[in-house]
Design a protein around this nucleic acid. Structure first.
Lengths: 255, 255
DNA sequence: TGTGCAATGTAACATACGTTATTGAAATCA
DNA sequence: TGATTTCAATAACGTATGTTACATTGCACA
């Protein structure tokens, strides 16, 4: 519905000027598309055109092997950008599909060119987004390589929780949670059956309350401990810190 | 001992002007450091300063859990850059260690600022490097989540092989290969014992000849098949394609 | 307001991979 | 050149997780 989540997230990290706000606002209201749940937005092999900004809804990035084995490699939540500058590459190496109904703003190459030339604070913010996404992907590598099923699941839930919180999507101690056990299986590299067992165990330990499409976490610290979760890789620790742009911004006066 | 590998790699993708070459050349000869094998260059928790360009030798990026479990999340080969613009982040979320003796050029924040302002072709090349590294990390997620031990190992060897080839480090059908079975275990999420079993199997199938610190691959296509290896994620398919910079380069006349 | 299909839950059984232990071969170094 | 350590190889055994199968619940839509 809005780009509030994106701006909220980026501003955690970089102070954006009114001009920056206007730029982002315009870009994210110009070309909007709506998708139903469980459809592909982008398919592996396609030529990348626009960069997608998730305005509302959940989506994921996934890859498939020839024989059908499938791995979810990232989740996209409101405010997330699917690969700044992808259009530099000749073809997509993965697909992007929706989980819920999703609204997307298409950001053009020209938009990024203009930003690169004129709005260094936004450039910094986009680099931050890119670096954090890379860090998340590394942490998934860690999870899949070293964490047990229980730790992996707890860790994933913590990550999603904190990202939702940053986007302003946690109410009290609960949130919308549209992922099926099948989705969780594809993301954790576990079988559906074992995902079920693992969720039962988390429930039995009182770490989560997951019912229907709602997740509640009564005690985040306990869930973190169960997942050996160290939030440093999300680089959210910037409260109060107002970082300057990479280069001197031409519109500095406006800030 | 030179930046040949980096330039060779970047030029696969973006045509760099003589000015660009000069810029990269100066940056990579100004501040060089040498490290012995098996030492840390950067530690998790530190404040990132410079960006590191590997001039020679092999290194890896790794993360550790409180209890010591360790995951190698990337390998760095000559010509690789460890995280363009990391200094945007407040602290490192991983460590970087050497495998062999390594020479590193430290690239300063000021260097990246200058490049951002004045050398758009290099900016594009750095974005390409960043996007490919992200794609590699996703593929590792895929490997750890879905591939069997044998597939995983074959896949990793294919990837390293192609990256070495791009850097100009394959001689005939063999290359230097300084990774121990312990390194491979930490990278694939397997135990050392099972890495050994898996290598034996690859040997028995005639897919690799691995002896001492030398790896030979008699038939790359067969190894690729064994690893369900699809090279698209490396985005090397740019032969002859001379992409323009993201924005109009100020030094276009020089190219 | 059923009816059908997807999602969840559980049980029984199978296996790929981990663990521990031991040995020999190579490097590394005094 | 022997002493010391690291690395590779292999065996015996254990287990976390996968597979198959089927029952149950819940929700979309007729």
């Amino acid at each position: 519905m809005s780009l509030a989540s994106l701006v909220r997230k980026l501003e955690q990290f970089v102070r954006l000027s009114p001009v920056d706000h206007a730029i982002l606002n315009r870009a994210s209201t110009e070309r909007i598309r709506h998708f139903g749940p469980r459809v592909d937005i982008v398919r592996e092999g396609e030529k990348p055109r626009d960069v997608h900004l998730i305005l509302s809804g959940w989506a994921y990035r996934y890859k498939q092997l020839e024989d059908g084995r499938r791995q979810v490699v990232s989740f996209f939540l409101p405010g997330d950008i699917c690969d700044v500058n992808v259009f530099i590459l000749r073809e997509m190496d993965h697909s992007i599909g929706t989980i819920t109904a999703v609204s997307v703003a298409d950001l053009s190459r020209e938009f990024f060119d203009r930003v690169a030339a004129e709005h260094p604070r936004i450039v910094t913010a986009f680099w931050w987004e890119t670096l954090v996404n890379a860090a998340i992907q590394r942490e998934w590598t860690m999870s899949l390589g070293q964490r047990t099923a229980l730790e992996r699941m707890a860790h994933l839930l913590c990550e999603i929780w904190l990202r939702l919180r940053l986007a302003g999507l946690i109410q009290g101690d609960s949130c919308d949670f549209p992922l099926t056990q099948g989705d969780l299986a594809d993301a954790t590299g576990l079988s559906k059956v074992h995902v079920n067992r693992t969720l039962q165990e988390l429930r039995a330990d009182g770490l989560i309350v997951l019912k229907g499409k709602t997740l509640a976490v009564p005690n985040l610290d306990r869930l973190k401990r169960a997942g050996l979760f160290n939030p440093n890789y999300l680089h959210m620790d910037h409260e109060g810190r107002q970082l300057d742009a990479v280069t001197t911004p031409p519109d500095a006066a406006a800030g």
